[in-house]
Design a protein around this nucleic acid. Structure first.
Lengths: 194, 194
DNA sequence: GTTTTATTAGAACATATGTTCAGTTAATCT
DNA sequence: AGATTAACTGAACATATGTTCTAATAAAAC
């Protein structure tokens, strides 16, 4: 057998990425074989190489797409109101990450499986996102509405706290995402308050 | 050749665990082979099986030892002063985790490589630690010194924030650990304050 | 000094790995 | 309808994997 009925790169391509995403998130990049991904797609392992030059690129492309989505979705706003900016960042971060648990998981857990060049590119994208928050915090300090001795540290602290939601939040659990959002916003607000 | 000069289980045993810890932290459990660990120890792969029944147990034992150390090191104190208890927890957590970056990394990243039974045991230990913080927060709410609408969520938020220190803190960097400790304690205190 | 035990080497096993490639079939174009 | 291109199969390659086992050597016990 060879080309199968109904086969199309616009269908198989996304399915390869979807399968890789789910499998990498569940078992980890190193623990997933190309044959497992192929089986999930319903194709032989060799066929995957029509859609990625190698396994490493498959991981890298998923990460880069995720971080570029993140940066595009969080349009940085007019910086005249740091408190409003911080609230928007907080709620946006929680919502965006809650919608993409697999992507978030991979982007945090599989950094060490990237080649040095790929790692540098991913880190640069992540850094751009963190800078958005740092800018908000600095503006708030200058405006006298935040008491933050070290905006860099506060940035890392807030992001770690917010991203932590993904480790336990499940749709349909005790709390709705809106409730979670409110609780975290209260804590974030107070943690940087005067 | 066979038994080598100076070979001793009290020496080789710890070296196996040390090598496994470092390699798992650097490359990930699934990406590290028994032969790599053996090479690091200076022994053939087969010899490792005098010190572990299999690769999985090697990972599990490292995780369990870490979490048992954690629970033993954090002696829960008299709960009459929630504010003091929270400050102690915060400073303890940062210090203890800063001293063991590899153990912490593994305990968070390699959970999915545990068998279901092993996973349950590790999760139970982690839960016991989280309960210590939750108890402090609940006591503070009852005493009227903390404003925390949901102690469970606040527990997760604080722990995520504190553990996040390990992702960026490096000895000899811009800030000393004591300074970092102070900054985080200020943020934690404010985030649960009235 | 001899026997027993502890510790290791080294080979072997069956299976899995990422990747390549020639051949084959389906879809598309002329 | 015929020619061309896109998509895939199935086999193959060299190498790596976790684990087991026998034989050999060092340390400990007697």
């Amino acid at each position: 057998m060879a080309r199968t009925a109904g086969s199309h790169s616009e269908i198989t391509g996304p399915r390869v990425r979807t399968a890789a995403l789910a499998l990498f998130a569940q078992h980890g990049y190193a623990a997933v074989s190309m044959r497992q991904i192929a089986r999930e797609v319903g194709v032989q392992a060799g066929a995957l190489y029509n859609y990625t030059p190698d396994k490493q690129s498959l991981l890298f492309d998923l990460m880069r797409a995720h971080l570029e989505d993140l940066l595009a979705a969080h349009a940085p706003r007019d910086g005249s109101d740091p408190m409003a900016g911080l609230e928007h960042f907080t709620r946006f971060h929680i919502q965006f990450h809650a919608e993409r648990p697999d992507e978030v998981f991979i982007a945090y857990m599989e950094l060490r499986n990237l080649s040095p060049e790929n790692f540098a590119e991913i880190e640069a994208l992540r850094r751009r996102y963190e800078d958005r928050l740092e800018t908000i915090l600095r503006a708030g300090v200058e405006a006298g509405v935040f008491a933050v001795p070290d905006p860099k540290i506060a940035t890392m602290a807030v992001i770690a706290m917010l991203t932590g939601v993904n480790t336990w939040f499940r749709e349909g659990g005790r709390l709705s995402l809106a409730e979670v959002e409110q609780i975290y916003w209260d804590m974030v607000r107070k943690s940087v308050a005067i």
